[in-house]
């Protein structure tokens, strides 16, 4: 990682973020920000970092020079392209310092950051802050947080699932896809299904016989019984020819 944002333009942005520019210089920066999206995002990064340092309750930056000289340095830098302020902290540098704290940098990158840290008080402040925050966060993992369920209750929930499921759900997608097929197979294996299907087929066949013989006719119903609960109705028919014709 490389921090290449210590350019005069960037330093001017730092001064802008600090509210140290004259009205004329300020309006000049504002016009630049409108036309340059990269500068705009840079000023947001600077502001974010300043906020972070402010909220940490520590001096956001320590300036080794008198205010006047410091900003004089910035503007001299604007005329001499490439010069940099020791106090410049870009978002890139912030993340680089974080990677340093997290042990993510290689040897040469580490040395690069250490060099920056040696000459930049704000960078050192940030380093200390990151270390403290990490230490505090780790303290939370030491909190003993036992499971609120008893072992028996907790295990029962797992055990129930283990009894119904098999080993290796690596093909869980195919299992999901096979779900409807499995349900259908289970439905077909239900002992009620076969007799029900037989009755259904017989009804179709008998109905077909009625239709073929054209024996749909009005018949005299002598009496009827209707079971309200099941909805089944039994009709008693007077004419015996009707039945003879139906079962021929």
């Amino acid at each position: 990682m490389e921090s290449g944002n210590n350019t005069p333009k960037h330093l001017m942005l730092q001064a802008y973020a600090d509210g140290e520019l004259s009205p004329a210089e300020r309006s000049h920066v504002q016009s630049l920000l409108v036309t340059d999206p990269q500068l705009h995002s840079e000023i947001e990064s600077i502001q974010s970092l300043r906020d972070a340092l402010d909220q940490a309750g520590e001096p956001p930056r320590t300036c080794p020079m008198e205010q006047h000289d410091f900003f004089g340095h910035i503007f001299r830098g604007l005329q001499q392209s490439g010069s940099a302020s020791p106090e410049a902290l870009t978002m890139e540098l912030v993340l680089e310092i974080q990677a340093y704290v997290d042990g993510e940098l290689s040897g040469s990158d580490r040395q690069g950051v250490e060099k920056v840290l040696a000459g930049n008080a704000a960078a050192r402040t940030l380093l200390a802050q990151l270390k403290k925050t990490a230490a505090l966060t780790l303290a939370d993992d030491e909190v003993l947080r036992p499971c609120p369920e008893s072992h028996d209750f907790y295990w029962a929930g797992i055990h129930r699932e283990l009894q119904t499921g098999g080993r290796d759900s690596s093909s869980s997608a195919s299992q999901t896809a096979a779900g409807p097929l499995k349900s259908m197979l289970q439905w077909l294996l239900n002992p009620v299904v076969v007799p029900a299907a037989l009755v259904f087929v017989i009804c179709i066949m008998v109905g077909h016989q009625f239709e073929r013989r054209g024996i749909y006719q009005q018949v005299q119903v002598s009496s009827a019984y209707v079971d309200q609960q099941s909805g089944i109705a039994v009709y008693f028919v007077d004419s015996p020819e009707f039945l003879n014709g139906a079962i021929d």
């Binding site: 974010s48 909220q55 309750g57 993340l95 403290k132 966060t137």
Partner: peptide, 24 residues
């Protein structure tokens, strides 16, 4: 990941700005 980690720490630092002095 780096950006989220930074903002998460920054938020924590902000929320714990009183508490953090206890570990120093």
């Amino acid at each position: 990941v780096m950006s989220r980690l930074f903002y998460a720490r920054r938020r924590l630092a902000s929320l714990l700005s009183g508490a953090r002095n206890e570990l120093t």
